[in-house]
């Protein structure tokens, strides 16, 4: 149904951001692992295509680890904000539907 289409899309965005957080948390966990390259998750075609890719690695330490702490924390924070925004949008969509389904009070 069309009215729930938006909520479904927002829901898949929430799933994506949750998964992306796990991937980014893995980068933080591997902050000191020799040879580790940071990973990231991206979303294309309106959220249809989700792919994991290796991100960064330009600045590589002597142990081959390419994680930049600030970069990863910034990504984590931006991702969290997007998640919060999406869940807020779901709340408002549901509120609108509730209003429409009610008797207008």
């Amino acid at each position: 149904m069309a009215d729930f289409g938006t909520i479904d899309q927002l829901g898949s965005a929430l799933t994506f951001h949750r998964e992306r957080h796990a991937v980014l948390a893995g980068n933080i966990a591997n902050l000191d692992t020799p040879g580790y390259k940071p990973m990231d998750l991206e979303r294309k075609d309106g959220g249809e295509l989700v792919t994991t890719f290796q991100d960064g690695g330009a600045q590589q330490g002597p142990d081959g680890n390419a994680v930049t702490l600030e970069r990863e924390l910034a990504k984590i924070d931006a991702n969290r904000t997007r998640y919060a925004a999406n869940s807020e949008l779901v709340t408002r969509q549901l509120a609108m539907l509730r209003y429409a389904a009610g008797d207008g009070t």
């Binding site: 949750r18 990863e72 924390l73 919060a84 869940s87 807020e88 709340t91």
Partner: peptide
Amino acid sequence: AGVTAMSTAVNMAQSALGI
């Protein structure tokens, strides 16, 4: 940094619970 990442996960879960 690990604690920050973990509390972010908690924060996200809380905003999901707010839906």
